[in-house]
Design a protein around this nucleic acid. Structure first.
Length: 648
RNA sequence: GCUGCCGUAGCUCAGGGGUAGAGCACUCCCUUGGUAAGGGAGAGGUCGGAAGUUCAAAUCUUCUCGGCAGCACCA
């Protein structure tokens, strides 16, 4: 007999080997009908799986959040079947569930195009309507390999070979079609429903390796209900409006042009935004860091010493002079900072020495990687290198983490994910050094999570570390949910050694410092891109490139408008004066489109009463205030959060 | 870099083998109007670039540059 515990803690007995379907059916017919899977001790399983041991059981119905993964996974299978029904010569490879949907990678002589998607969708609808049952079979390896080989499915054969010896080869059938799959699946294709849509086609390398063949990937999204699908598609549409590339143009912040792929032309307003960010960051460094500025161009030999030449020279901008010297435009600030550290003897008393730079770096990024401000070929890092002793290392990592979280909070990012990237395959340094560095970082990571009271989520990215050391990555999301690495902390035992950097310890001995590379925003360009999208261009006043526009309603009020403009400027606020021969409606519309946070309209009435009419971005209302009062309010609002904290 | 798609005025886009079109923006004039487009007139592009096919190319072909999506990369 089998004892199964239900979510309400009731326990029921079944014959050993009873399936999830048996259990659901024993409770009610309607439950059996609604059931798509079972969770045994929290793990999703097929309804048809026999249950062999006592366990906690939950019948998962289609409206359970966990069913969404199954809907998507099953949709991927159905898409593969649809594709093979339409184009039998196509090979299928893998098709996992991803955030918001699924994809499947196919191998076909002529890759699919967007025009094929409606055809595939239609076929999928038919397959779903057939409502074939998903059935599972366990095959022997040879059987599976022979079958897929006979079908010309070379990739599947490779996948069978890749299944670890201790695992069985599972085959899921839906009608006449079958696929190698780990499962679980729902009971039948009909349970997928019709709330899905194929989104796009793209190339993707087999097994994620650019040395391999490129396959065609079809992305789809799938939801439990039509309503959710519509909401998701609507969300994407809305997110597109916040795209920083679109807003950058509309708000006149910056532009790109053909002659400078991946390099930004910052316009006045965009540069003001940039300055607002650097000024803020500079204040946050005060006291703890010394700001420096290292040369933009340095001899190749320095990059050879640092190791960057060997690892990245094809991604460096290189320049040769008349006298045949080869220089590289700096892709990193670290070698420069080490030179500054080495200049003059350093004592243990100087440590930790925190050296910061708003460093403009240039990297010849692959053309396909460029993406607005997020990935550019010349950008500014809010970089710093901390030279410290090994004992100081953990504490410094915490200090950096505190600073990063505090900065992010000021920009409205409270739920931050910190990930530890560990040793990559290609790396420098001995395993002992890596073991040690990773151990320290792991401990710090755990402490970060603990100290945050669970607010900070952490994770490990195996093999994603820098070639010289493990790193923490702080990623933020753009409007449509793409993740971008922003902050980072990297410990490095290698560079100081390569450059022969040392300090004199208390015992008079030369010792090698540990070097911690860190960035808060990472790339200021990228961070601004993220900010533009997250604020949808509606910046808080302290960040906004422009605070206000003073718009005269009639030319009678021009003189007063000038007065108001001057008074606001004198108070340190940034803004323009609009005396154009246009109606106030027109001016309001235009400045609203430009996302000016505060429109100050003045006409005869205001001039007579020494007041201003204030209209805030996003609001249809106006507030009439005395000029002086308005200025006091705006100045207060335009004060950066760090300065406010200092004042309070 | 790879796969697919795209590239027409500052912006958004239509057109499509016979020598370019709309709306907005821009300039000028009228209008002095109270919170998301008042009216009129005008200027502006040779259709990303190069080569080829053709009597004729922006329109077809090839190459090239740039962009978009995804993959790969991201010190």
């Amino acid at each position: 007999m089998l004892q199964l515990t239900f979510p309400d803690n009731s326990v029921r007995e079944y014959d050993a080997g009873a399936t999830g379907a048996d259990v659901a059916g024993s409770i009610s017919k309607s439950l059996l009908k609604k059931a798509v899977a079972v969770a045994i001790d929290g793990e999703l399983r097929d309804l048809s799986d026999p249950i062999e041991a006592n366990a906690a059981i939950e019948i998962v119905t289609r409206d359970d959040p966990r069913a969404l993964e199954l809907i998507r996974h099953d949709a991927a299978h159905v898409m593969a079947e649809a594709v093979q029904e339409l184009w039998p010569e196509t090979q299928v490879t893998i098709g996992p569930v991803i955030e918001n949907g699924f994809y499947y990678d196919f191998k076909r002589e002529t890759p699919f195009t967007t025009e094929d998607l409606p055809k595939i969708e239609k076929k999928m609808q038919q397959i779903i309507q057939r409502n074939a049952k998903f059935t599972k079979e366990i095959w022997s390896r040879d059987e599976a390999k022979e079958y897929f080989a006979s079908k010309g499915e070379d990739y599947k054969v490779e996948l069978v070979d890749a299944i670890p010896e201790d695992q069985t080869v599972k085959i899921y059938k839906q009608g006449d079609w079958l696929d190698l799959c780990r499962g679980p699946h729902m009971a039948s294709t009909g349970q997928i429903g019709q709330a899905f849509k194929l989104m796009k086609v793209a190339g993707a390398y087999w097994r994620g390796d650019s040395d391999n063949e490129m396959l065609t990937r079809i992305y789809g999204t799938a939801w439990a209900s039509d309503k959710e699908l519509k909401a998701y598609l609507h969300m994407l549409e809305e997110a597109e409006k916040r795209d920083h590339r679109k807003l950058g143009r509309e708000m006149d912040l910056y532009h790109f042009q053909e002659e400078g792929p991946g390099v930004v032309f910052w316009h006045h307003k965009g540069w003001q935004l940039f300055q607002n960010l650097t000024n803020y960051m500079r204040r946050r460094l005060e006291g703890d860091y010394q700001e420096v500025n290292a040369p933009q161009i340095l001899d190749k030999s320095l990059w050879e010493t640092s190791g960057h030449w060997e690892w990245y020279h094809e991604n460096m901008f290189v320049t040769e002079t008349e006298d045949h010297r080869t220089f590289a435009i700096k892709p990193m600030n670290c070698p420069g900072h080490v030179q500054i550290f080495k200049h003059g003897l350093k004592s243990y008393r100087d440590l930790p020495l925190r050296m910061a730079e708003f460093g403009a770096v240039s990297r010849y990024e692959p053309s396909g990687a460029l993406h607005g401000l997020m990935r550019v070929r010349a950008f500014t890092q809010d970089d710093a290198h901390i030279f410290c002793t090994e004992e100081q290392m953990a504490e410094e990592c915490h200090k950096i983490n505190d600073l990063i979280l505090s900065v992010y909070k000021h920009f409205g990012f409270e739920e931050v994910v910190v990930k530890l990237s560990t040793r990559p395959e290609k790396r420098v340094g001995s395993d002992e050094v890596w073991d040690h560095a990773e151990a320290v970082m792991t401990e710090v990571l755990n402490e970060i999570e603990e100290r945050s009271g669970g607010k900070i989520k952490t994770g490990i990215l195996e093999g994603e570390g820098a070639f010289y050391g493990p790193k923490f990555e702080y990623t933020l999301r753009d409007a449509i949910g793409r993740e971008w690495q922003c902050g980072t902390t990297q410990v490095d035992f290698t560079l100081p050694e390569r450059f022969g950097a040392f300090y004199v310890d208390s015992d008079g001995e030369k010792k090698q410092p540990v070097m911690i590379h860190r960035a808060i925003c990472g790339s200021l360009e990228r961070f601004l891109g993220i900010l533009i999208e997250n604020f949808a261009g509606h910046f808080p006043l302290w960040l906004a490139p422009q605070h206000f526009v003073v718009a005269a309603i009639t030319s009678d009020a021009d003189d007063y408008a000038k007065e108001v403009h001057a008074a606001l400027k004198k108070a340190g606020l940034r803004g323009e004066l609009d005396l154009r021969n246009e109606k106030i409606n027109y001016k309001v519309r235009e400045h609203s489109h430009a996302k000016i946070p505060v429109i100050i309209a003045v006409g005869k009435r205001e001039a007579e009463e020494n007041t201003v009419s204030i209209r805030r971005l996003g609001s249809r209302n106006q507030t009439i205030l005395g000029l002086d009062e308005a200025i006091v309010n705006l100045v207060d609002e335009a004060t950066a959060p760090d300065l406010k904290e200092l004042a309070s």
